[in-house]
Design a protein around this nucleic acid. Structure first.
Lengths: 112, 112
DNA sequence: GGAGAATATACCTGTCAAGGCATATTCAAG
DNA sequence: CTTGAATATGCCTTGACAGGTATATTCTCC
């Protein structure tokens, strides 16, 4: 999970991922389209590969990179845990404040 | 989008976000639960705040931090664009290879 | 208004990662 | 087997960022 986020956090890597969203591409094409130097692209792809975000397929001297679905599914699952909770926050905040006040009252009583 | 990912990529910030998922909390409580120093927590919360991931509410000398829903919704929307595409990749890869071969044939014919 | 709690900020330091550049590797084709 | 294309890797430098510590700020309460 953290590996996925770290990999996606880098702007150029995000661009690469969004480019690969359309279809698999060889390194050179990615470099050309994003106007990046080839070594940098290879390095970014290495990071993405280590994070499990992409797969490689050799075709002649080319290496075709493609997205993998798992990390995105995991990210989606993780996001799910934020769905309803977030909409309930306001109420919970009120609860917290009430609790806090009540606690303070209790302490005050206890002190005397 | 990139701001969101960058903010979430840091392990301790991710822990903070996951802690806030349950309910809003003051700085001190976050520090205690995650066994982090208070200044570091404040700094992380600053980053999260700048990225729009959290809101603050002063209550006495405390500052109650809570998650905001927008960035998570945006992240979810972004993820949506990867849903179907990823499952189509295999076919597209085949297409790419076919195209590539066809192109090569064409070049060969043209050369002669 | 003085003391102490809760939090934010400033400064320093070390680490890590991204870019630039040169070079190694692998493969196709003549 | 030599050449050139496509890609990966190694080394170096630099900038950003996280942690540590001290200090500033803000509020409550007496």
């Amino acid at each position: 999970m953290n590996a996925t986020l770290t990999a996606l956090a880098e702007p150029n890597r995000l661009r690469i991922v969004e480019l690969l969203r359309d279809k698999p591409r060889p390194v050179g094409e990615i470099a050309k389209r994003l106007r990046l130097c080839q070594p940098q692209v290879s390095k970014h792809l290495r990071v993405l590969s280590d994070a499990g975000l992409v797969d490689v397929r050799p075709v002649a001297q080319q290496r075709i990179y493609q997205l993998r679905s798992e990390p995105f599914n995991e990210l989606d699952t993780w996001l799910e845990t934020f769905r309803r909770r977030v909409s309930d926050r306001m109420d919970r905040l009120e609860d917290l404040i009430s609790e806090r006040k009540a606690k303070k009252e209790r302490e005050k009583d206890h002190g005397h």
